[in-house]
Design a protein around this nucleic acid. Structure first.
Lengths: 224, 224
DNA sequence: CGAGGGCGTCAGGGTTCCGTCAGGACGGGT
DNA sequence: ACCCGTCCTGACGGAACCCTGACGCCCTCG
């Protein structure tokens, strides 16, 4: 199910959005202010963000910038401002769409659908199959020999990053920036520990990995 | 340069769009009707399509559907209709954005930039093929006779530099500056050692290289 | 004919990098 | 308050890698 993070301080609108989105089979989380928005966008891993620019604590643009600093999740901006300058600034900061209030709900929904289509991983198959295990990005589940494998949040996050670019090498810095933030992007030891745990849970022979392959000096890659 | 196909039957607006886009360093082609739009979108390979729904011969929606039949190029729809039904239909048919006339030019430009961001790495041939091995820059992988070849970071870095300019000679100083920094750009011996290792791993007959060719006194070059 | 420079090959020491085990810190649930 | 799962850091053995030095070859030039 598509996970939508709604960042909206006005309670009435927030409730309306949540109800409507849930009625359309979205998985919805609501953030009332900028802090919660950053927290949820970092830890809840939404597939889409609806961001109202008018927030009580932080400037909405700063929230957008922060999210874009480490994630490529589609962001649809909601705003009462209608001047083209505001739209240009938001779009050039990385917003995928800009909807002015008041808006028609069905139009917003259509724009959300369009935005979700843009997710870089959205065009490929949402499920990665290898010889010994299967990763389902949409369902957030990984199965091995038919049985589901229990993964900790960090383990899953890591596997998700690798599965999002199957076959391609994911750099250590890239992984660490996603997992722990840009500041700790040099702690490569962290990656080794969790890669080992993933291998223990997923590889038939953890000491001779066939799918969770390390590329020395660069990063790791998931091969099908 | 980004190639934009403008589909617009109204001459004044078509000219204005073309002029503005060209001023912003876009490569622009204009189609006055649906037939020309389909023709150009198929043969000219635009990176972005600006599509006005009001066309003399075909329905704009049919044009959109046709394009989406074979291409994932970003399409920004332009229309005089402002009802949300029209927007929903266009967006759900595959349009990336919907702009109602009249519109502010700078907003349209921002939306075009946002739309073009969605195209996933459409530039350049990411794979170099020779008679005995192939280099895939994107996947960071090199295969020989179908089997993957293990390269050390330095070996790969070197091969990457050569593959980035296939056929052209890459100077020794250029190589060394990339590999070891500007200060050590005279240690040509370093290059010989690693070229030899690359040849040993990739050439059928390492003593008589066919693809990793030496240009005496100048540098090396990769020939397909 | 000998000297010299550019090139390719081989080998080894020093260093970095990787994988693994173990244990303390933290937090949520009972 | 206790327990359990998870997160994170430290230490260590082993492997891979980087780089340099030494040597032989070929060609050119004195």
């Amino acid at each position: 199910m598509t996970r939508v993070l709604v960042v909206e301080d006005e309670p009435a609108l927030a409730r309306a959005l949540a109800i409507t989105l849930r009625a359309h089979r979205y998985d919805v989380a609501v953030a009332n202010d900028g802090r919660a928005a950053l927290d949820l966008s970092a830890n809840w891993h939404p597939d889409l963000v609806v961001l109202d620019l008018g927030l009580p604590d932080l400037d909405g643009m700063d929230v957008l910038r922060a999210i874009r600093g480490w994630s490529a999740v589609p962001v649809v901006v909601l705003s009462a401002r209608q001047t083209s300058d505001d739209k240009v600034e938001a779009l050039d900061t990385g917003a995928d769409d800009y909807v002015s209030k008041p808006f028609a709900m069905d139009e917003l929904l259509a724009r959300l659908r369009a935005a979700v289509r843009h997710t870089p991983t959205g065009d490929g198959p949402p499920v990665v199959v290898t010889a010994t295990f299967t990763v389902d990005l949409a369902l957030r589940k990984v199965t091995r020999d038919g049985a589901e494998v229990r993964l900790t949040p960090t383990e899953w996050h890591m596997l998700e990053l690798l599965a999002r670019d199957v076959g391609k090498v994911v750099g250590r810095r890239e992984l660490l920036t996603e997992l722990r933030g840009p500041d700790l992007a040099t702690q490569t030891h962290y990656l080794r520990v969790y890669l080992a745990q993933l291998r223990r849970k997923l590889e038939p022979d953890p000491t001779h990995p066939r799918h969770l392959v390390t590329v020395p000096g660069v990063g790791y890659r998931l091969v099908p």
